[in-house]
Amino acid sequence: MKRLGIVCGVKAEEAALGTLVDDPALRTAVSGASPAKAEDLARELVEVHGCTALLSFGVSGALSDALVPGDIAVARAVVMRDGKRIEASPQFAPLLAQCAARAGLTLKHVDMADAADVVADVAAKRALGRRTGTHAVDMESGAVAHVARELGVPFTALRAVSDAVHHTLPHAALGAIGPGGDIRVMTTVLRLMLRPQDLPAMMRLAAGSSKGFKSLGRCARDLVPGLLGVV
C-alpha cells in the first residue's frame, strides 16, 4: 500500500488537513518548527510507518516579490544550507497540476530555501533569496528533502505563503511555537505588551497568516487527496 508521509511544522498546519489525517493512505508528523526533529520524524515516517513518499506541508515565507500571501508554492527543488540543491521528485507536479486545474487553483513552481531558524527581517529574506536563487523559505522542507534522498523515496513541498518578503516578522511573534507545535499564545501576548510598537507588524502578520492558512486549507481539500494512493 502506498502511504504519504506529511511533515508539518506546527499543529495548525496539520489541522488544516482536516479529516484527511484519518485516512490510512497518509501519516502526519509535527516537528515544532525544529529542523532536527523534522528530519527525525521524516525518517520515522518511512522506516517505522511504511510511508512510500514524503510531503513537506504548511506555510512559508516569501523571499522575493514573486510570491505574496495566499500564493500556493510547489517545490521545484530545495536549496540546502550548504548550497546543495535537491530536486523535488517529478511525479508530484503533474498530479498536483491536474488537481489544481479542476479546482481553479494557481500553483507557483519555485525553488525553496532550507532554513535552520526563522528568517525575520526584510534584508535577511532578500539576501537569502538572492544568494540561493529561491523564492520561499521554511524549516521543514530541507529536512524532508534530505531524508527522502537518503532513503530513496519521492518527495515534494507544498507550501502556502503567509508573509511577504517586504514584511519584517515582529519580535513578539518570535519563539511563539512550542516544541510540540502549539502556538504559545500567552507568550506572544506578553511580548506584545512589552513591545506595543510591534502591534502594526503583528496585525500584518495575522492578515498574511489568514490568507496563507486559507490557501493551505484549499491545498488540503483540493490537492493532497490527489496524491493519496498514487505516490
Rank of each mutant, 00 (worst) to 15 (best):
residue 174 L to H: 10
residue 167 H to I: 11
residue 71 D to Q: 07
residue 208 G to C: 08
residue 133 G to A: 11
residue 152 G to M: 12
residue 123 A to F: 10
residue 219 C to T: 09
residue 225 P to V: 05
residue 141 S to H: 11
residue 104 G to K: 04
residue 196 P to K: 13
residue 27 R to D: 02
residue 53 A to L: 09
residue 109 H to C: 01
residue 91 Q to T: 10
residue 213 F to W: 12
residue 158 L to A: 02
residue 82 D to T: 11
residue 37 K to R: 15
residue 121 D to Q: 12
residue 62 A to W: 12
residue 102 R to K: 15
residue 101 A to D: 15
residue 137 V to F: 11
residue 82 D to H: 11
residue 186 M to R: 12
residue 207 A to C: 07
residue 195 R to H: 15
residue 149 R to N: 13
residue 59 V to E: 00
residue 198 D to G: 03
residue 5 G to T: 05
residue 190 L to F: 08
residue 128 L to N: 10
residue 154 P to T: 14
residue 2 K to D: 08
residue 218 R to T: 03
residue 153 V to R: 14
residue 124 A to H: 08
residue 221 R to S: 11
residue 116 A to H: 13
residue 43 R to S: 13
residue 58 G to Y: 09
residue 145 A to E: 06
residue 224 V to N: 03
residue 227 L to A: 06
residue 59 V to A: 00
residue 93 A to M: 09
residue 53 A to D: 08
residue 195 R to K: 14
residue 189 V to G: 00
residue 206 A to I: 03
residue 4 L to W: 11
residue 206 A to L: 13
residue 132 T to E: 05
residue 9 G to T: 07
residue 171 H to D: 14
residue 80 M to S: 12
residue 134 T to K: 02
residue 186 M to N: 06
residue 231 V to C: 13
residue 202 M to C: 14
residue 105 L to P: 05
residue 41 L to W: 08
residue 27 R to C: 11
residue 176 A to N: 03
residue 225 P to K: 04
residue 54 L to H: 02
residue 197 Q to F: 12
residue 36 A to C: 00
residue 78 V to C: 09
residue 211 K to Y: 03
residue 27 R to I: 07
residue 130 R to S: 12
residue 159 R to A: 02
residue 69 P to M: 05
residue 227 L to W: 06
residue 30 V to H: 02
residue 118 V to A: 13
residue 102 R to C: 04
residue 165 V to W: 10
residue 166 H to C: 08
residue 91 Q to W: 05
residue 200 P to I: 06
residue 203 M to H: 04
residue 187 T to V: 00
residue 74 V to R: 09
residue 95 L to T: 11
residue 134 T to S: 15
residue 98 Q to G: 11
residue 143 A to M: 07
residue 18 G to A: 04
residue 114 D to F: 08
residue 13 E to N: 01
residue 145 A to L: 06
residue 76 R to Y: 08
residue 166 H to S: 11
residue 13 E to T: 01
residue 166 H to G: 09
residue 201 A to K: 15
residue 113 A to Q: 05
residue 168 T to A: 15
residue 203 M to V: 13
residue 76 R to H: 13
residue 5 G to S: 09
residue 73 A to F: 14
residue 83 G to F: 12
residue 118 V to D: 01
residue 182 D to M: 02
residue 142 G to P: 00
residue 182 D to A: 13
residue 76 R to W: 10
residue 186 M to S: 11
residue 161 V to S: 02
residue 205 L to N: 03
residue 42 A to I: 05
residue 132 T to W: 04
residue 169 L to R: 05
residue 202 M to H: 10
residue 69 P to K: 02
residue 6 I to Y: 06
residue 171 H to N: 07
residue 125 K to F: 07
residue 147 V to S: 07
residue 15 A to C: 04
residue 84 K to V: 11
residue 55 L to H: 09
residue 51 C to P: 03
residue 219 C to K: 06
residue 119 V to R: 02
residue 231 V to W: 10
residue 145 A to Q: 09
